[in-house]
Design a protein around this nucleic acid. Sequence first.
DNA 1: TAAAAATACTCCATAGGTATTTTAT
DNA 2: ATAAAATACCTATGGAGTATTTTTA
Lengths: 231, 231
Amino acid sequence: MNIHQLEYILAVDQFKSFSKAADYCHVTQATLSAMVKKLEEQLDIVIFDRKANPIATTENGREIVFQAQQVVAHANALLSSSKAINQKVEGRVKMGVIPTIASSMLPLILKHLVEKYPLLQLEVYEVTTNQMIKDLRDGKLDVGILSTPIASTEVETELLYVEDLCVYGHLPAGKHSISKGDLAKQRMFLLQEGHCLRDQIIQLCDLKKHKPLPSNLSVESNTFDTLKLSG
Amino acid sequence: MNIHQLEYILAVDQFKSFSKAADYCHVTQATLSAMVKKLEEQLDIVIFDRKANPIATTENGREIVFQAQQVVAHANALLSSSKAINQKVEGRVKMGVIPTIASSMLPLILKHLVEKYPLLQLEVYEVTTNQMIKDLRDGKLDVGILSTPIASTEVETELLYVEDLCVYGHLPAGKHSISKGDLAKQRMFLLQEGHCLRDQIIQLCDLKKHKPLPSNLSVESNTFDTLKLSG
DNA sequence: TAAAAATACTCCATAGGTATTTTAT
DNA sequence: ATAAAATACCTATGGAGTATTTTTA
């Protein structure tokens, strides 16, 4: 087992295709196939069901993929650290962050970041997605954290992490799951105009933007905490 | 960079010796030296100060070692998972745990364990170190978790994790650190007779076992929480 | 009948070994 | 003087390549 092999199965799991995974990993399809097979033999676990279309990750394979993600993530962190140590991270960085993320994610990392790199002068600006694209183009910002997908092809993007969308509320009596249609019929608390998550939810649930919702309570807010308290 | 190299630097960091580390990793000293050197070159970071005696981990090296621990730990977890999947972990296991550990560590893992392996019938017994050695010999227990070092050579041991010993109290005025001697003069809260950690502390701090401590308060307990509340 | 995955083989980079030299107490 | 680490050199495993065949929608 080596780290490359783990990266290969992560790519296959992601793309559901050996060819695409090989392309992504910058190796030939033959090499990737052989390495995946070798890993499966070494672990004595069939990770992928190649007969399914598209290729499916087996029950056991999902467990292995999950563990592989941990290993690869930490290996990448190690490499990042070594680069950081060498480059003596310093200088001024102007970073834009969309409000949705700013309130939840920044407190978790900012303190750690500035302590780790005391020479780094980090300037954080809370801006909307559209504004961020403009500011990046104008050089007002160096980097930004926002929510994919973004329409603009001008900016170079790198996936940081994936978050599930959760529904916070009561299950309709007798139901065990909720569909998009169910949600559209419900009263829903939304973030204020301008937040991309608001637009995404509206699009996702096919909500009519201008049809007033049958509600005797209207709450819009910048933060989830306010929404939760209101509910 | 590969997982073996990371294991090598962990061993050197632990043993403060290339030879001992090589022995521990079941490779020759030359191989391990070469691999550590190669990793240092690839990361462009000097991890160990070979001129120090014993060998010291550099400032940057400690950061790399910490990250390496994460990678190696998760890699081992992956291998464990694959074995668990294959062996279809099931059957009855009688596990002994010393009280000191039982109250702190078990709640963190037991639930996860039995959920992950529903076919595993795990029986946990809280026993002292001496009793555990006997029960292992008699077959009353299959495995046990205790605190090293143990005198008995009859049992096969595997290091699970390392915990720092912490002093919980006030620093003497004007001091920035505490020595063993300082501790011996202080009143100290100890776990009850029979707990190995009690004996270890007494031995470590050269406390006179039978000389009554000048104290108007005597607290002995099975749990740290009680001790903290009492303090 | 294409597209994708598996197979067959070749190659070479490198992890690992042995033997020896250098370094530090 | 001796133990430990570094160095030199050799070997062989296995990761990665090209070319081809097999499989599946």
